[in-house]
Design a protein around this nucleic acid. Structure first.
Lengths: 215, 215
DNA sequence: TTATGTGAACCGGTTCACAGCT
DNA sequence: AGCTGTGAACCGGTTCACATAA
């Protein structure tokens, strides 16, 4: 019953990435001050985040890079292999299937499914697209926990209901819809329009509606 | 200097999407209670968010759907057309170029650029890929404010510096890196690994490391 | 002395309770 | 009466100050 905030978990994920980047540089140790700066947070914030889970550093010294990586991977559950089924073989589906950025973190896309007969049977990144109607069978075969929804907004809630019925326990949703799901399902939604609109909001104060011509 | 929180802006974007969905249904009015539920927030939260910008509802009645859509579009700066240049013509770049979800919100991808000679000259979604080295010229020609970074992590900071120098004022970053930028640049980062790891974190408490075989 | 770990203070976003229109 | 608008209370996440360990 840990009361760990979403913000803390999100930041752990970011620390992990920064740690891996420090490791790339061949360094064995790092200070909270540096790791925090690279993660764009305050050093106390970072130490507090870690303190919820244990004491991983050495006072006066800092943190061992490989040890802290190992600890955060453990916290995030990345010590085991996660199997994910990708629903939707459109352009976004292609991008996700071809994006191998989380394979080092033990998250694997093990199957791809779509409802469009024109797409079923095609191969994407070495994976043959199956019929999304067979969600339950695909889940059982791949032993997948996570469903990735890369489908149009209109199809998302329907599909979400289906993958829940098929036994998936986690959903990463890319459709611009707020999904209604049982509380037991772990859901994270990525909304591309939100990303762009955060930027336009900030820019609108700086840029006038009509671009003023250079004088 | 408005003191509007990021959370509020993010939610406005979500309200807008829900309002559009209500409009699809042919409805002219909506109550804060319903709109809030569809957005997965409390009704008071929604009304408070709107109250920072004005009074758009009618007491005892609710909100006019088209009027509120108009207001939120204005707040988010979506009353004008935003031009965005996409950097990176890999799989994610293809997905973004093919994703027309924000065109109704006046955000247009007007050019695509890459550093890979093998990609330059190819056409994606009707747009010819240009040389990323020409960022400044592309920006000037398209009158773009926003640079979309869909490049590998290793290339992101470098490219970010270049697009800032080229005169872009906003960046939507898809590379898993914390970019260091001048404070005047509007930045929003989308990190796919964070999305997946939020889900694995939640699931790890529920699922044991080794799947227990069915008895 | 240096840098981590953490209870306590602080602050800002969320929620409440109710005033204000229609 | 019904629903929005909003100052005030509340709560939780962030920051501070300092105790603790190397």
């Amino acid at each position: 019953m840990s009361r760990i905030s979403n913000s803390t978990v999100r930041r752990l994920s970011i620390y992990l990435r920064q740690l891996e980047s420090v490791r790339e540089e061949g360094r064995e140790n790092v200070l909270s001050a540096e790791l925090a700066e690279r993660s764009a947070v305050k050093a106390t914030q970072m130490r507090k985040d870690l303190s919820f889970f244990g004491s991983f550093g050495r006072r006066g010294i800092g943190y061992s890079v490989p040890a802290l990586i190992e600890q955060i991977r453990l916290i995030l559950g990345l010590d085991r292999v996660w199997s994910a089924v990708l629903f939707g073989a459109g352009s976004l589906g292609h991008a996700l299937a071809g994006y191998h950025g989380f394979e080092p973190h033990n998250i694997r896309i093990t199957a791809i499914a779509d409802v469009d007969p024109g797409r079923i049977g095609k191969t994407i990144s070495g994976i043959t697209v199956e019929n999304a109607a067979d969600a339950a069978a695909i889940r059982a075969r791949t032993n997948a926990q996570i469903a990735v929804l890369a489908v149009p907004a209109t199809a998302a809630q329907d599909l979400a209901d289906k993958v829940v019925a098929a036994g998936f326990s986690g959903i990463v949703n890319f459709a611009p819809v707020r999904l209604i799901l049982p509380a037991s399902i772990a859901l994270y939604s990525v909304d591309l329009a939100v990303a762009f609109e955060q930027v336009t909001y900030k820019l609108k104060d700086l840029k006038p509606p009509v671009p003023s011509p250079k004088s």
